[in-house]
């Protein structure tokens, strides 16, 4: 499918209100988490890292990656370039979230487990997801023809979603048979209600941020494709 119809661009508003609101929401969560949420007695203040680490993981791994996989599947079926742009945008925003997870994870792990990295099943799966999304984005940049680029990316996106359970299972099996030294076992998630409220507010704020970033990234992709199309026309 080489001659795609020109992508329509909605006239973009001057200021991105959604993004502004999302950033404010995150800032609000920051204030609540750092100043108005009690410190967990056994783990100390570092336990608060979970409010940004775990929530970013939920959004990045499940929402962003899931959306990328579903959009990829739908693209192969319906061949609509909009779906390809959704997949691409979701992957890139997901990479941002995954980067946060990988950057904050060791900080939390050092205080809880006494080690920066312990090949914990979830963190390792996140690491591999990071590699896969980087590979996805590099594949996209290596293919010039838009139709082929979309198809290749969609294939990789779908295969990657099949891979993730295998990685998770393998690392989990590896870990249960090779127990890693644990200094302090993290307490089971029976958080008091104030902490639960902080956690869920953080989750909502980061979901809102994801929606805002996704929309901004999607618009950028639409504009880029429009420019590429115009360039092709004028030679």
């Amino acid at each position: 499918m080489t001659t795609a119809s020109e992508p329509l661009t909605p006239p973009a508003p001057r200021h991105d209100l959604l993004l502004g609101a999302a950033l404010l929401a995150v800032a609000g969560v920051y204030v609540r988490a750092l100043m108005f949420t009690p410190i967990e007695a056994r783990q100390g203040a570092a336990q608060k890292i979970l409010y940004v680490h775990a929530t970013s993981a939920i959004v990045g791994l499940y929402i962003a990656f899931g959306l990328m996989a579903v959009a990829s599947l739908l693209y192969l079926w319906l061949k609509d370039a909009k779906l390809d742009r959704v997949a691409e945008s979701s992957a890139e925003v997901g990479l941002c979230y995954t980067t946060v997870v990988l950057a904050t994870g060791p900080l939390w792990g050092k205080t809880i487990w006494g080690a920066w990295w312990t090949w914990d099943a979830r963190l390792t799966s996140t690491l591999f997801l990071w590699f896969i999304i980087v590979a996805y984005l590099l594949l996209r940049s290596a293919v010039e023809e838009p139709g082929r680029r979309a198809r290749y990316a969609a294939v990789l996106g779908i295969l990657a979603s099949l891979l993730v359970p295998f990685i998770h299972l393998s690392v989990y099996l590896f870990r249960t048979l090779h127990p890693m030294p644990i200094v302090l076992k993290p307490s089971a998630p029976s958080m008091p209600s104030e902490m639960q409220l902080t956690f869920f507010s953080a989750l909502l704020a980061f979901i809102l941020l994801f929606a805002a970033l996704l929309r901004a990234r999607y618009r950028m992709a639409t504009l880029r494709d429009l420019a590429a199309h115009r360039e092709q026309e004028h030679g």
């Binding site: 336990q47 940004v52 946060v100 900080l107």
Partner: peptide, 19 residues
């Protein structure tokens, strides 16, 4: 209660910067 507030601060700053 361990004194590890520095880690939390660092994590929150890094998160903000990345986003």
């Amino acid at each position: 209660t361990p004194d590890n507030g520095g880690f939390a601060t660092a994590a929150y700053i890094i998160t903000a910067i990345v986003y």
